[in-house]
């Protein structure tokens, strides 16, 4: 099996050797693992994108270990792939393997997370801007509420993690200048559905059974989904009595939006491979060197954006 693969990739190499840009590029992809639905979706989308464009994808699951990723990268280099995509599990310790890739003249694109190495060691990085995501959510809420006074409760991500810090900061920027919007409660829900629900119960408790809450901002959809259940169990209508905005755009939040139980979500697209491949194609075609950071779009979805359809489109991605 493996031997077969090697043979084909060798053949592909031989064919593509003459042409600077040909169909059938071999791409090595080192994924962190499958610790979340989003990550699984990223893997699926990367595969889909590669297939659409006719690339051959060499996939390697690192199971959360850097040494696995380094080993995978070395094997990609040894195979002489045309490009490497990597979602690095940690930020440090990549210098030497990236240097090896550079010496082998294989472009490396970082997906969704950054490394501490010198930017000259990789072609570009594709990722979202976490602060921006929060800001989009905040702006939407400010607009949706208008001039009414609004007490907001916030479900933070894991305390101290960069998404939690940045999404909080972005949201605060988004609602800045709207004095009628105030964040009255803010606690961590650890990015999980069950803690999202549990903490929301406490919010409801301390905000007069939830009657004083006008909106919920959750740092991810999972916590929002948990919170929606808590709100329902408390006898209130999520989406109406309490506005709900969150980030990520996983399928389940679209289902909630379709049911009128959530109001808006900001997409953290798992399609990091698309922009990455675009950049690679331009690079192969005429040597266009992309910017060092390609920011993915933080698209806002509301109940008006056909949530049922979005749900159908996404549910097969492995979320």
């Amino acid at each position: 099996m493996k031997f077969n693969k090697l043979l084909t990739s060798a053949a592909v190499l031989a064919i593509s050797a003459g042409a600077a840009f040909a169909e059938g590029e071999v791409i090595g992809f080192s994924q962190i693992g499958s610790e979340s639905g989003w990550r699984a979706a990223e893997t699926t989308l990367t595969r889909n994108q590669a297939e659409e464009r006719g690339y051959q994808l060499q996939f390697s699951d690192a199971q959360q270990r850097q040494e696995n990723q380094i080993a995978a990268l070395r094997s990609f280099i040894a195979q002489g792939v045309d490009a490497i995509l990597i979602a690095p599990v940690v930020a440090t310790g990549w210098d030497s393997v990236l240097q090896e890739a550079k010496e082998a003249e294989i472009p490396v694109v970082l997906l969704d997370r950054m490394v501490d190495s010198d930017p000259s060691l990789y072609l570009t990085a594709v990722g979202s801007n976490l602060v921006h995501e929060g800001e989009v959510a905040g702006k939407w809420l400010a607009e949706a509420v208008g001039d009414k006074p609004c007490r907001i409760v916030e479900l933070q991500g894991t305390t101290g993690s960069s998404p939690a810090i940045d999404r909080k900061k972005g949201f605060e920027q988004g609602i800045a200048g709207h004095a009628n919007l105030t964040i009255v409660q803010s606690q961590t829900g650890d990015f999980t559905r069950s803690l999202g629900k549990e903490v929301m119960e406490s919010f409801l408790q301390s905000e007069n059974g939830g009657k004083d809450i006008c909106a919920l901002y959750a740092h991810n959809d999972d916590m929002a989904v948990g919170a929606i259940q808590a709100i329902k169990e408390a006898g209130l209508k999520p989406g109406e009595d309490i506005l709900i905005v969150s980030i990520d755009a996983v399928p389940d939040i679209f289902k909630a939006m379709a049911d009128g139980e959530a109001n808006a979500t900001v997409e953290l697209t798992p399609n990091m491979a698309g922009p990455a491949f675009d950049a690679l194609e331009a690079f192969w075609a005429n040597g266009t060197v992309p910017a060092k950071f390609i920011q993915t779009e933080s698209k806002l979805y509301t109940q008006a954006d056909n949530p049922a359809g979005e749900y159908e489109a996404r549910k097969g991605l492995g979320y």
Binding site: S36, D190, T192, R193, S194, K197, V225, G226, Q229, D252
Partner: peptide, 16 residues
Amino acid sequence: VVTADIRGADANNAGL
């Protein structure tokens, strides 16, 4: 109990 609570099995976080 935790699975029933959130109407879903969250293998990554349940019981963590």
